[in-house]
Design a protein around this nucleic acid. Structure first.
Lengths: 247, 247
DNA sequence: GGTGATTTTATGTATAGACATATAGACGCG
DNA sequence: CGCGTCTATATGTCTATACATAAAATCACC
């Protein structure tokens, strides 16, 4: 079962306007290898002759390709096909509640622990902040059709997110609340595998030592830490799926 | 230690040209919540008055924001701030050899098994192909500074990648060879956690039952399967890192 | 009031022209 | 040859204008 769906860059089949035709044409040549990495793409001047249009039209097509990182443009030098991309994929981790309900399964939520406290040393390290301040610490469990789905262990910096003080996390999962109330600009995910300890095994109803998939996520807004969360999934039955569509 | 680095969308601090100023200004208002999701952004007509420029300049700024999925534009209706994005991140999985050497560690490679054969039923399922054809099956191990880093188990469809028949995978890892010789257009990753079986434990020098991080990757070119690979990493010591930078 | 045709309007695409700017390559000089 | 300077040039940005197009709003009609 897929824990996460990919965010396909939806390619609406819109009317092939001129600049889009040019973009697709160049894209095709790059992806088929006709124009290999490092190859110099014809100058805008030449392309406008080839396609019989103005330079601005060619420029729009090339600008979009540059924004998509397929080509590199250097003043005076020209435009070049970029070195082969790393295998990269858009990994989408939606809100767990939305994920479960969108699969047509019933969503369950249990708040295990919730406390408000001054940040201790461990909290400060985990949040990457230096000064002491108040934090909210939450442990909870998500389940699908009554079966444990994931456990969540979260810290929220109350200085950065003061509204979290009044939210009721007994009803709404903190991830869902944050997604709808707090805009973020940067996030980092660290994915690893661990063996279930006694506590995790009990919460997820699996055996001690069973492999678990772990996602540690740190979220910022403009370099300011908002929240740090660890999500633990039973590893054997769940998968993260990330898909890349070139073009 | 990080198994994978993120591909930061490098934001060169370039001269703030007018359209970029407009783009950043609107971006800021969206990210700070001043213009919440659903809010209608002033018409191009109004923005060109506000910023004292032509409509094309405003249009360029808005077009880029639309391409970045921060806003939605509808003819006649106007331009709107989009609903909050899913937590998404660019997950980058570079070539393992490049990954290890870029960290300044010595790369080691051992070919465990390599065979060419007609695709059997299991191979066809794994590659998602229907007709029988020749495939190459490779098992190998990557190590860093002499320590097992990952094991790789790969199938290559020889009909789609005939050049693979002449490549010498005793010297060059198949992933590296493919990256440099075969262009691809689509890839799907499935990430999970498993317990090491006897074979994995022996190859990675870990105990049986130890958690491992597994990446199953399937790669296509224009809907044609090229290769399917399973990478198994010791889970406790390795992490996949994916970072998202908004904007 | 409902329904279909018409108008209005904001965005989408395209153009020709202009000037800015970074820089590869040529040039000159010691 | 090494090094700084100049120049040609490809891309970067911006303008004013034009027409296309989709869809919201209005109107006409039954």
């Amino acid at each position: 079962m897929s824990l996460s769906i990919d965010r396909d860059k939806f390619q609406a089949a819109d009317k092939p306007t001129l600049y889009k035709q040019i973009r697709l044409d160049i894209e095709r040549r790059i992806l088929t290898g006709e124009w290999p990495p490092g190859h110099r793409i014809p100058f805008e001047h030449q392309l406008m002759t080839r396609y019989g249009c103005s330079r601005m039209t060619v420029n729009k097509a090339l600008s979009e390709l540059a924004q998509a990182d397929l080509i590199e443009r250097r003043r005076r030098a020209g435009t070049f096909v970029r070195r082969p991309k790393f295998l990269s994929a858009v990994l989408t981790i939606p809100d767990i509640r939305a994920e479960i309900t969108s699969l047509g399964r019933s969503y369950g939520y249990q708040l295990i622990r919730s406390s408000r406290r001054a940040a201790n040393a461990a909290d400060r390290i985990r949040l990457g902040i230096s000064k002491t301040g108040k934090v909210v610490a939450i442990s909870c469990r998500h389940s699908a059709d009554g079966v444990p789905f994931a456990i969540e262990d979260r810290l929220i910096d109350l200085d950065a997110v003061p509204e979290a003080a009044t939210a009721d996390f007994a009803i709404e999962p903190p991830g869902t609340w944050l997604l709808h109330h707090v805009p973020w600009t940067e996030a980092e995910h660290s994915i690893s595998a661990i063996a279930a300890d006694e506590q995790i095994a009990a919460a997820l109803d699996i055996t001690i030592g069973a492999p678990c998939l772990v996602i540690d996520r740190h979220t910022w807004r403009s370099a300011r830490t908002l929240t740090a969360v660890r999500l633990v999934y039973p590893g054997e039955s769940h998968k993260l799926v990330a898909r890349f569509k070139g073009g």
